[in-house]
C-alpha cells in the first residue's frame, strides 16, 4: 500500500517572516538604543535591561504554566516588552521596582487579557505608567548623562555619581519656554542628556526605526504622523528651535517608533495608523504645554490605545468593487 499524501487547502507555501522573526527584528532595532544607553549612563543600564528582559520572559513562562496555556516565550514578544520597559526607566531604578513594572506589563496587561495579540494597551508602556505613578520619586530621578559618551564606558554609573542627583531634564526647561542649562539641540539628538535609558538618543532610535521600516516590520505612518504633529504644534507655539527641541527631547522617538507601532494595540490600516499618530501627537502636546507633567508621550499612547477599536471602525479598508447594500 502506498503511503498516504498530505492534503490541505491552498496556499501550500508560506512567507518566511513569522511572529518570532518580527520580534527578533524589533530586538535588533533596539540594539542601537541599548548601546547608546550604556555609553550615556554606564553599565548599570545593561543590568536594568537584562533584568527586565529576564523578568518578563520568566513571568510569562510561569503564568502560562499556572494557567496550563501553551508557552509563548519562543515568539520573543515577552523579551521585546521587557526591553522596551527597561528603556523607559531611569538608570538608578531599584530592581524590585522594575520587577513590579514587569509584572504589571506581562501579567496584568498582557496575559490577563488573553496573551499576545489580545491586550488592548501596550504592556511596556502601561507598566511604565504604573511605575511612574507608584514610584514617582525613583522614576523622576534622572541621573546626569555623560557629556562625553566615551567616558561612560567602564563606569557603573556615569559620570560616577553613585547617589544619583536629580537633574533637570530638557523637557523641564522646555516647559518654561526654551531650552536652558547647557543643553543644545545637537546634544538632544545624540542623547547625552538626562532621561530614561533608551529615550534620550534620538539618533539611535532613528536608526532602529529605519531598520524596522526597511524590514517592513512597521509602516512609516504612525511615527511620521506622531512626530510631525508634535513638530507642527510646537512650531506654532514656540518657533523652529523650540519645535526641534520638543521632538528630540523626552520619549517621543521611543514612543512613536517602538510603542505607537505595537500591532495589537493600534489600528491595522494605513489610514487608521495616521489618525492614531496624529491623536498621539495632539495629546502629547496638550500634556507637555498645559499639563502638570513635563512628558505626555506614554499617556497619549495609552489614551489612543483605548480609542483604537473606534479608529479601526472608522478607517476600515474599502473593499474593491464593494457595493453598499
Amino acid at each position: 500500500m502506498e503511503e498516504m499524501m498530505y492534503v490541505s487547502i491552498s496556499p501550500h507555501i508560506r512567507a518566511k517572516e513569522d511572529t518570532r522573526s518580527i520580534m527578533r527584528d524589533v530586538l535588533i532595532a533596539l540594539c542601537p538604543a541599548v548601546v547608546a544607553s550604556v555609553l550615556i549612563f554606564g553599565f548599570r543600564a545593561l543590568l536594568v535591561e537584562a533584568f527586565c528582559v529576564v523578568c518578563c520572559v520568566a513571568l510569562e513562562l510561569v503564568f502560562e504554566r499556572i494557567c496550563k496555556r501553551p508557552s509563548t516565550i519562543g515568539d520573543l514578544s515577552a523579551a521585546v516588552t521587557g526591553l522596551i520597559l527597561a528603556l523607559n526607566l531611569p538608570v538608578s531604578i531599584p530592581l524590585w521596582q522594575a520587577l513590579v513594572g514587569c509584572a504589571v506589563a506581562i501579567v496584568v496587561v498582557k496575559q490577563l487579557f488573553g496573551g499576545i495579540g489580545h491586550n488592548f494597551a501596550n504592556p511596556a508602556m502601561t507598566g511604565r505608567i504604573v511605575m511612574f505613578l507608584a514610584f514617582s520619586s525613583a522614576m523622576a530621578t534622572w541621573a546626569p548623562a555623560a557629556t562625553n559618551p566615551a567616558a561612560g564606558l567602564g563606569s557603573w554609573y556615569s559620570p560616577a555619581t553613585v547617589d544619583a542627583v536629580a537633574t533637570a531634564t530638557p523637557l523641564r526647561y522646555l516647559k518654561d519656554g526654551a531650552l536652558g542649562g547647557d543643553y543644545t539641540i545637537l546634544r538632544l539628538f545624540l542623547g547625552t542628556v538626562g532621561g530614561s535609558l533608551g529615550e534620550t538618543s534620538a539618533l539611535a532610535l532613528l536608526i532602529g526605526g529605519c531598520y524596522l521600516i526597511y524590514r517592513k516590520v512597521i509602516s512609516w505612518h504612525t511615527p511620521v504622523a506622531f512626530i510631525c504633529t508634535v513638530f507642527v504644534l510646537s512650531l506654532l507655539k514656540g518657533g523652529a528651535s523650540f519645535a526641534a527641541a520638543e521632538i528630540f527631547a523626552g520619549g517621543l522617538f521611543l514612543g512613536a517608533i517602538f510603542m505607537a507601532t505595537d500591532y495589537a494595540t493600534t489600528p491595522s490600516t494605513s489610514a487608521g495608523r495616521v489618525v492614531f499618530g496624529i491623536g498621539c501627537g495632539l495629546i502629547t502636546c496638550l500634556i507637555r504645554f498645559f499639563g502638570s507633567y513635563p512628558e505626555g508621550v506614554s499617556f497619549s499612547i495609552l489614551l489612543m490605545n483605548i480609542l483604537t477599536p473606534y479608529i479601526s471602525k472608522w478607517t476600515m479598508s474599502k473593499p474593491l468593487g464593494g457595493v453598499k447594500q
Binding site: Y6, T19, G115, G117, Y263
Partner: peptide
C-alpha cells in the same frame, strides 16, 4: 508538505 502550526493573531495588519 507540512505547514507550520497557527499561532495567535498579532494584529499586524
Amino acid at each position: 508538505a507540512v505547514l507550520p502550526e497557527p499561532t495567535p493573531c498579532i494584529k499586524c495588519g
